[in-house]
Amino acid sequence: MGITSAIVLFAVLWFMTFLVVIPFRIQTQGDLGEIVPGTQAGAPEHHHLKKKAWITTAIASVLWVICAFVIFSGILTVRDFDFFDRLGPRPTLEQSVPAEQ
Rank of each mutant, 00 (worst) to 15 (best):
G38E: 08
I75C: 04
V65K: 04
A99N: 07
I3P: 05
Q40C: 08
G2C: 01
V8R: 03
M1E: 07
P44I: 03
P91C: 10
A53G: 02
T57M: 11
T56C: 10
P23Y: 04
E100T: 12
F24E: 07
P91G: 07
E34F: 04
E94T: 05
V65M: 14
G74T: 02
I66Y: 08
F24R: 05
T4E: 03
V78Y: 09
A60Y: 12
D31Q: 14
I26Y: 01
A53F: 04
D31W: 01
E100I: 15
G74W: 11
L19P: 01
Q101L: 13
S96Y: 08
Q27R: 13
L49A: 09
P44R: 12
A60W: 11
E94R: 08
F15H: 11
E45Y: 15
A53C: 06
H46N: 06
T56S: 09
V78T: 12
G74H: 06
A60E: 13
F24M: 10
V62K: 08
R25D: 14
L49P: 00
C67V: 15
L49D: 00
H47G: 02
F18S: 09
G42V: 04
I22W: 14
S96A: 07
S96W: 08
G42H: 10
G42R: 12
M16N: 10
L19Q: 13
W14Y: 15
D82W: 04
R86Q: 11
V70G: 09
V70F: 14
P37I: 05
R25V: 03
I71Q: 05
G30D: 06
M16W: 11
E45I: 11
A41K: 14
R25C: 01
V65I: 15
P89D: 05
E94I: 10
F72P: 00
T4G: 04
A99P: 10
P98E: 08
F81D: 01
D80P: 08
A6W: 00
F83E: 01
R90M: 13
T4D: 02
V20Q: 11
G74M: 09
Q29R: 10
R86T: 10
W14M: 00
Q27K: 13
I3D: 05
I3W: 05
G2Q: 03
V62Q: 11
T77K: 11
L63S: 15
I26T: 14
F24C: 04
H46C: 02
F10W: 11
L87G: 14
C67P: 00
P44A: 14
G33M: 02
E100V: 15
L9W: 07
G42A: 14
L13D: 03
V70Q: 13
F69R: 08
I22K: 12
V12K: 01
I66M: 14
Q40F: 13
Q29E: 12
